[in-house]
Simulated assay, not measured.
Amino acid sequence: MTPYQSLDRSVAGKTVLITGAASGMGRATAHLFAREGANVMATDMNGDGVAAVAAEIKEAGFANVASIALDVSDHDAIKASVAATVEQFGGLDILINNAGFARLAHPSEEAYEEIWEDSVAVMLTAHQRLIRAALPHLMKTETGGRIVNIASTEGLGATPLNGPYVAVKHGVIGLTRAMAVDLGRDGITCNAICPGPIDTAINASIPDDHKVIYAKRRVPLRRYGIPEEVANITLSCCLPAASYLNGAIIPVDGGMSIKNA
């Protein structure tokens, strides 16, 4: 009988670049990876905000973090952020594509076109550009590079007035599957997380009582999730032991996506 093989469940010493890290799930992910011993490059178009997150992490006793202001719709800035990460930490092992936003519009509205273009630029085109910029470094990782794209349960269905976001998140799932197939031969895995209703700034304008009603009606766990719950699933996808998880689309939604009524 083959002996039990103990697999590495630590990201200590690995280097991770996280986009959209100034708040919400990105912030929680930066905190978690730093606490697990990874070198963290936290990026966000809100430079002051992401610098504050890096300062929080350092104040908590984890010095292995740096931050960069990054507009992911800027191709040159993407390349520069990857280069700065490698210069700061000596390599790049993990990429977390988390940056995003949500803006509602009906297809008949004038704003729809602008929202569409911005959504594609920030939440789809930027993902593939970051992956391609990081690829030469991910290919050098001894235990295999890791890519995690933050999609959404909107990539598994659709809700009204959210067309650009829905289309883009479906695209992120497609991109994840394509990259998993193309990069698997190099030992690089690519997986997607699909958060459901998570308590972040994106839905801060929704009254709390409406959130309670929605969660009790739609979510089997009867509550919104918190960013740290998503961050922990993201971390799990990046462990050396997760080397055979590739092309997975993982809902983190309290069971919402499997509930019929």
Rank of each mutant, 00 (worst) to 15 (best):
A60Y: 02
A60H: 01
F101W: 08
R218G: 02
W116C: 05
I258C: 13
G61Y: 11
G145P: 12
E142I: 10
V11W: 00
D48C: 08
A28K: 11
A241T: 09
A231F: 08
A54G: 11
I249P: 08
R222W: 08
R132I: 10
R146A: 01
A12T: 00
K259S: 14
M41I: 05
A201N: 13
D253C: 09
A80L: 06
K14C: 01
T159C: 05
H31T: 02
T125E: 13
L92Q: 04
L130M: 15
I115Q: 04
A201V: 04
K169S: 07
G225C: 06
N149A: 12
G155N: 10
A178V: 05
V168K: 08
V86F: 10
I250Y: 10
I193M: 03
S23D: 02
R217W: 04
A204H: 06
Q128W: 14
I150L: 13
H31S: 02
I188C: 10
I233T: 11
H127G: 06
E59G: 14
T141R: 15
K211C: 03
A121H: 04
D48E: 14
N46K: 05
I226G: 01
I198S: 09
N246E: 14
V53D: 00
M179K: 01
G225M: 09
R129K: 15
Q128M: 14
G157V: 01
P227T: 12
K216W: 08
A34D: 06
V252F: 09
E229I: 07
V181Y: 10
M41S: 05
A60D: 09
M123R: 00
A69N: 05
Q88E: 11
R222E: 15
W116D: 08
V50C: 03
T85A: 10
I233D: 09
F62P: 00
A231V: 10
Q5F: 04
G47C: 11
V148E: 00
D93T: 03
V122Q: 02
L161Q: 11
I226S: 03
I233Y: 04
V53R: 00
A38N: 02
P3A: 07
G20F: 00
A105G: 03
S257H: 06
E154M: 10
L138A: 09
A66Q: 06
G187E: 03
G49D: 01
L175C: 11
A242V: 04
A102H: 12
L17D: 02
A28W: 13
N46I: 00
V252C: 15
G254N: 09
L156Y: 08
M256I: 12
A134H: 11
C238V: 06
A178P: 05
A158E: 07
E36G: 03
A215I: 03
Y112I: 07
A12C: 03
L183S: 06
A22M: 06
D8C: 15
T2I: 13
A192C: 06
A126V: 04
Y214A: 12
V72L: 14
A84T: 01
L183W: 01
F89G: 05
A241I: 10
P240G: 15
